[in-house]
């Protein structure tokens, strides 16, 4: 299922990091709807906002992978298919999802 996602990424202050972030979406069937970057002068970091459309499950995997990049400091988004998320991403949703997942696990067991 293809969904629209709005993603915000705080990343290091150089082209290499920006390129690495954008590169991860290349050749995987995503459409770029919009993209803006802005300097966060206070932190000396950059903020990337982008709207992308694409397969949601793959997007989540890529975001988790991006979260392990040394120069990516924070990832957040406006839409999240909750059932896929669990540990690992720096999202305020994470805790709630873990709890839900835990309850469901018990039922399954």
């Amino acid at each position: 299922m293809n969904l629209n996602f709005e993603i915000k990424i705080i990343f290091g202050n150089d082209f290499d990091c920006l390129n690495k972030i954008l590169n991860i979406f290349c050749g995987k069937g995503f459409t770029l709807e919009s993209l803006t970057t802005q300097m966060q002068y206070k932190n000396n970091k950059n903020e990337l906002k982008m709207k992308v459309k694409g397969p949601q499950k793959l997007l989540i995997i890529l975001l988790k992978r991006m979260d392990t990049f040394p120069d990516v400091f924070n990832i957040s988004w406006n839409k999240a298919p909750a059932f896929i998320f669990n540990e690992g991403l720096q999202s305020p949703l994470t805790k709630k999802i873990n709890q839900r997942k835990g309850e469901r696990n018990e039922a399954l067991l």
Partner: peptide, 24 residues
């Protein structure tokens, strides 16, 4: 089966097989 997955890489969790319990 009830699946429990231990791994260090968060992006491996539920990537191809959904697990009931993920331990990162």
């Amino acid at each position: 089966s009830y699946k429990i997955h231990f791994d260090i890489d968060p992006s491996n969790m539920d990537k191809t097989i959904h697990c009931d319990l993920n331990v990162i």
